[in-house]
Amino acid sequence: HNLTITQGKLFFHYNPKLCLSEIHKMEEVSGTKGRQERNDIALKTNGDQASCENELLKFSYIRTSFDKILLRWEPYWPPDFRDLLGFMLFYKEAPYQNVTEFDGQDACGSNSWTVVDIDPPLRSNDPKSQNHPGWLMRGLKPWTQYAIFVKTLVTFSDERRTYGAKSDIIYVQTDATNPSVPLDPISVSNSSSQIILKWKPPSDPNGNITHYLVFWERQAEDSELFELDYCLKGLKLPSRTWSPPFESEDSQKHNQSEYEDSAGECCSCPKTDSQILKELEESSFRKTFEDYLHNVVFVPRKTSSGTGAEDPRPSRKRRSLGDVGNVTVAVPTVAAFPNTSSTSVPTSPEEHRPFEKVVNKESLVISGLRHFTGYRIELQACNQDTPEERCSVAAYVSARTMPEAKADDIVGPVTHEIFENNVVHLMWQEPKEPNGLIVLYEVSYRRYGDEELHLCVSRKHFALERGCRLRGLSPGNYSVRIRATSLAGNGSWTEPTYFYVTDYLDVPSNIA
């Protein structure tokens, strides 16, 4: 807008934040220059609390790290170098490059900038070799853009010569660093050979998330399962459950009422301010606690030095998902009996873990797994792929695949051998790939016309006998059925096997 004052003059007093240069501009645009008398524009009460600059400061050096910015700028000295009290560095987070010096300023003089007072450097006698002032900004957020400017702080001049310097606002972004852990990993099994893994992005990506790394490792069953005799009275049979499938998407929606109208769909109840505040506090606490764990609990591995020492970490090797089922080394339970199943799973520490690289999504279907087997899954978020990966501390989750139908069934015939004193040795093959492992066998036998009897055969007993022995049988026709019990439950009964026990007292003698 054009402003013209045809008559009258300007009068400025007691404006401590208004620089004289701005008042002189007002004289020019209003056409009143030359009308004012000496005392109409006070030299001592206008701009006496402001830094009124008329020179431009330029930054000469900028260096960044993930949490620091090192700045240096060209030296500046007023005509009387004693008038320079120091520099004021202003900075704040700036997602967009549209910041002005006066953003967030209120009537009390406060604003949204963080201000650092910096002492002037030592003055050199040689004007050509003056030290460049600077400042190291610490405690910054990774991968965050900051708006920065600097200006001088000078003393009051009796001659009211307006001098000083100020830089333009520059924008500097800190470097990326390792992201925080992925949030809320959930693993479920939808079949006997697959596990579905879902997660949420890290709360602090500290860069642009480029991919996720998912490692999985087959877990050995508890050692007590191999040692305890679950045929003993009072000892509860062990059981394991597989990871249940995901709930429906509708039930997972946030901010939804727990109660549904019987007449149909209901609208979600909005969260109160107290609920939102509580969630923010919980989120802040979780982030602080995660940072504490990362800094205190997890110790970084030592990389190899120039002395030739090897990095103890196993090298990563990509495998196809079809090879995942046989990740671990199978060892027989008892070496003397080769027909026992290889369900003991000690994992070799030198073995390469299978892994998958996930790009542009937060889910993965891990296939080719062994049925009813526990897996430990390790999830890392990465925001750099080359020249070397920059990934987060791992988040861990466990899951067990679903049982395989008929995996616990005894394959092959049940054979028998009759000894003296009416002892019958029953023999059968253990299931080759049971659900988890076989903890015991149930032997059901009966003599024709009598009630059915049951015998429990422990895992250890089966390994020693290759089956079991029935003792003290009365003469007669017998039928026997056997079924295995694994961590997933009972298998199917075998087809009945028949044998006849004679009275050993009636056996004919070869003595003449």
Rank of each mutant, 00 (worst) to 15 (best):
D222N: 10
P245G: 07
S474Y: 14
F285K: 02
S203A: 10
L505V: 10
A263T: 09
I209G: 15
S203G: 13
E282C: 01
N255F: 07
R466C: 06
G467Y: 10
S283L: 12
H211A: 05
V324T: 14
H416A: 07
I366T: 03
Y230K: 03
S320Y: 10
S203Q: 13
S367G: 06
S203C: 15
K317C: 12
K406Y: 08
V423P: 02
D408Y: 01
R218T: 09
E217S: 12
I276Q: 08
W242C: 04
S320H: 07
Y504T: 06
V358F: 11
A394I: 05
A407K: 11
R301T: 09
Y498Q: 14
E227C: 13
H425R: 09
P496I: 13
L487W: 14
Y498E: 12
A394P: 08
T272I: 04
S268Q: 07
Q256A: 14
T485Y: 14
V334I: 03
V345G: 08
Y375M: 13
D409L: 08
L437Y: 13
H461I: 10
E310D: 01
F419V: 09
R447P: 10
A336L: 10
T307D: 15
A336I: 10
D503A: 07
T502Y: 15
V397H: 15
R447S: 09
H425D: 08
S509W: 11
S320G: 14
L487F: 14
K271I: 05
L232C: 13
A220S: 13
R286Y: 02
N477T: 06
R446A: 07
A381V: 04
I438Q: 03
V393I: 13
S262R: 13
E420W: 15
P205D: 03
R483C: 02
S239F: 08
E279K: 03
N421K: 12
K361I: 11
P245N: 08
Q384T: 06
D503P: 15
V327E: 07
L280I: 15
P338M: 11
E290D: 15
C231Y: 01
P270G: 02
N208E: 14
M402Y: 06
E260L: 12
L369W: 02
T340Y: 08
G308R: 14
V443L: 09
L426R: 01
S251R: 06
K317H: 11
E247K: 15
T497K: 11
G325P: 14
K432V: 07
D229E: 08
E247A: 11
N421P: 13
D323V: 11
S474P: 07
V359K: 07
E388Y: 15
R370K: 13
